[in-house]
Design a protein around this nucleic acid. Sequence first.
DNA 1: TGATTCCTTGTACGATAGTACAAATATGGT
DNA 2: ACCATATTTGTACTATCGTACAAGGAATCA
Lengths: 242, 242
Amino acid sequence: MVRKPAKADVKVAGTRKPNMREAILAAAEELFSTYGFNAVSVRDIAQAAGANPGSVTYHFKTKDGLLLEIYRRHCGPMNLRRSELLAAARRVRDLQDRLEAIVRAYVLPAFTSGSDLAGGGTRFTRLRAVMSAEGNEVVRKIIAQTFDDTSNAFIDAIHESLPHIPRTDIVWRGHFLLGALYYTLVTPERVSRLSRGSADGSDAGHAIEQIVRATVASLQAAPLDQAAPARRKTPVPVKGQG
Amino acid sequence: MVRKPAKADVKVAGTRKPNMREAILAAAEELFSTYGFNAVSVRDIAQAAGANPGSVTYHFKTKDGLLLEIYRRHCGPMNLRRSELLAAARRVRDLQDRLEAIVRAYVLPAFTSGSDLAGGGTRFTRLRAVMSAEGNEVVRKIIAQTFDDTSNAFIDAIHESLPHIPRTDIVWRGHFLLGALYYTLVTPERVSRLSRGSADGSDAGHAIEQIVRATVASLQAAPLDQAAPARRKTPVPVKGQG
DNA sequence: TGATTCCTTGTACGATAGTACAAATATGGT
DNA sequence: ACCATATTTGTACTATCGTACAAGGAATCA
């Protein structure tokens, strides 16, 4: 990442910020989720937080440690929130409403923060999207350990609402949901651009409604024939073309 | 990225590879799409291609130039293929079949290469996913210039098949399709893991069928009420919770 | 107030980054 | 075989990277 050359504000030694640790974490979240892990230097983060590079080392030891701490403080609250909302959704009587409530329970905590961290929800989800795209080694194990239980709980809940759909198909469609979620947070401006101004990709409320609606419909679709087709590898001919 | 310390094969000066330029491009595609742009050094690429770092500079001038060239040689063929398949899909009589053919025409070229580059299709799409996640400045403008025309053509074609769905909703759902596509190529092992072995996330043929099925269903879903709701920002209450 | 701990600062070090460049070698036309 | 060109190699330069560390100012409690 390219830092701005000008260093307008001269820093007076000794003036201590109320909570420098939090400022560093927030700056790191923002920068990592925007430019990726390797594109951002410790110095970038320190400057954005109004801190000294040494402070980052002091609080988090290493750059990996900083990333780890970001995950540590978000994963718990987020999954807790999801569990709560899932439990509530399970109690919905109407089957169609229940399915929608379950999907919403999965989507919502990705946008709203699990704790009181300002804007933390979307920022952290965006971070997760970027880290998974970069195949970050530090977070790979955390992802599997921390999120798979929650994911399985949602898959099972959906499976209960749609018993005629094989679990495998639900896994696929839930996977697509997460991909849609990530991509919407990563490039919201593409929605604005392609819709020619009639939609705002960064409107979280609208994005949630659209994702929920699309996902519920996809979950209800007829499952794939597990039999003969879908056995071939690339290339696959266009069905009904000639 | 961490290079392997051992340099087993001693390189004899002068032994020229049949096409070093191609080898460098292929290695760069593979590494960039796996670890991200900034995580991979020119030396990493050179080593993976069995080349000298200087050769990379010779053929592509800069690291950005290398990335640019990767896009240059994939975008044209891929969009051409998409246009051909879209034209064929438009001629399908049955409306349901036509919609499916259109979606398939969009998805297919993302998996199969537009040219004869081995495995180039998924690799390049994976690269696009990673670059968009990292907000890469070099490719941002290319994306908008090169892909928006094609995207709009598909949106319009879908809109013709589903005239009762507002264009805005189609944009959203098409956006989700692309997100699902990207995420499936970036983390296929998550599908295998969550499905407990009953599905292979990296089976391109199966992934295509699943994506097409899910997307067609989501496109056919009732559009959102453009009126009262979906106006609120975060947080959004869970519908039907209490 | 003084002592202790906590936090911040400034600087520095080794590693690695992207890139430039001259020398060395391979290729292709004649 | 020779020359001109194209490509590869080896090396080097500068910038920036993550991190370490000593020194100094703030906070806390006696």
